[in-house]
């Protein structure tokens, strides 16, 4: 029971991550693959943020009047920083991927991966 209470957050992220992973490898539509990749990245971001949490701690903005600073009172700022940058990378990779998909659609008039490969084979 203690394992469940202590670790259930990781299991939620693993479930989310596996949904994204399934979408990435099993779906044929390219846009669905990209959305799966986004879900995967969201799971990783949530995982990092949850590692930053400490019980009974507050956000890492220090109170000025405090003389002695106890690190156990503030949650870990480092994963927040890393994930702040990771979110922006997520947005930009999503934008670039959508741009590439739009170019592919203009070229082949389909978003299905197998059909694109079929068209490429016929060209040879």
């Amino acid at each position: 029971m203690e394992t469940v209470i202590g670790k259930y957050n990781y299991w939620i992220y693993i479930a989310l991550m596996m949904i994204g992973f399934y979408a990435m490898i099993a779906k044929r539509n390219l846009v669905k693959k990209i959305v799966g990749m986004n879900i995967f990245q969201t799971a990783i971001i949530l995982f990092f943020i949850s590692t930053a949490y400490k019980k009974d701690a507050t956000i890492p903005i220090l109170i000025k009047s405090q003389e002695v600073i106890d690190p156990a009172q503030y949650i870990n700022p480092l994963p927040h920083v890393l994930m702040l940058t990771a979110i922006v990378v997520m947005v930009s990779t999503f934008g670039v991927a959508l741009a590439v998909i739009m170019m592919l659609y203009n070229q082949y008039k389909t978003l299905d991966e197998d059909e694109i490969i079929e068209i490429l084979r016929k060209k040879k």
Binding site: K7, T51, K54, A57
Partner: peptide
Amino acid sequence: DMPDWGDPNSPAS
């Protein structure tokens, strides 16, 4: 093997 949720002594912090 991971530390519990909200553990102040987890290796990350």
